[in-house]
Amino acid sequence: MPKLKTKSGAKKRFQVKKSGAVKFRRAGVRHLATFGKTKKQKVELRGTGHLKDEDAKKIKECFPYAR
């Protein structure tokens, strides 16, 4: 049986942690100062987040060797 391939788009955007949580980077962070974002929007876009279980299940299908 051949090795299974990871979806290359998913490996660039998500990371499956040991706990099984899927870490992601928020969209819309590239140009924080432009397009009149409010302070609240900029604060909420900081850092990374974890997907909800329903969404994480779908993403984990792209990682055949994730635990």
Rank of each mutant, 00 (worst) to 15 (best):
K11Y: 02
R25H: 07
R26D: 03
L51D: 08
K7D: 12
E54F: 12
I59G: 04
K3T: 04
K18I: 02
T38I: 01
H31T: 04
A56H: 08
K40S: 14
A33M: 05
V29C: 11
I59L: 07
R25P: 00
K17H: 12
F14R: 03
L4R: 03
K7G: 00
R30M: 07
L32H: 00
A10T: 02
T48M: 13
K11S: 12
A66H: 02
P64Y: 02
R13S: 07
A27N: 12
K57Q: 14
L32Q: 05
H31C: 04
T6E: 14
T34E: 14
C62E: 15
A66W: 04
G49E: 06
L45V: 01
K3M: 09
F24S: 06
L32N: 01
E44V: 00
K40Y: 09
P64A: 04
H50Q: 10
K3Q: 09
A10R: 00
V22N: 06
V43Q: 13
A33N: 05
G36Q: 07
R46F: 07
R26T: 02
G9M: 00
K3C: 03
K7C: 08
P2T: 06
K11L: 07
M1T: 10
Q41S: 11
V16I: 13
A56I: 01
K39M: 05
R46M: 15
K37F: 13
T48N: 14
K17G: 01
R25E: 07
H31K: 05
T34G: 05
E44A: 15
G36L: 08
K39I: 09
A27C: 06
K11H: 02
K42Y: 02
K57M: 13
L4P: 00
T38W: 09
K52Q: 10
M1G: 13
K42C: 13
T48S: 15
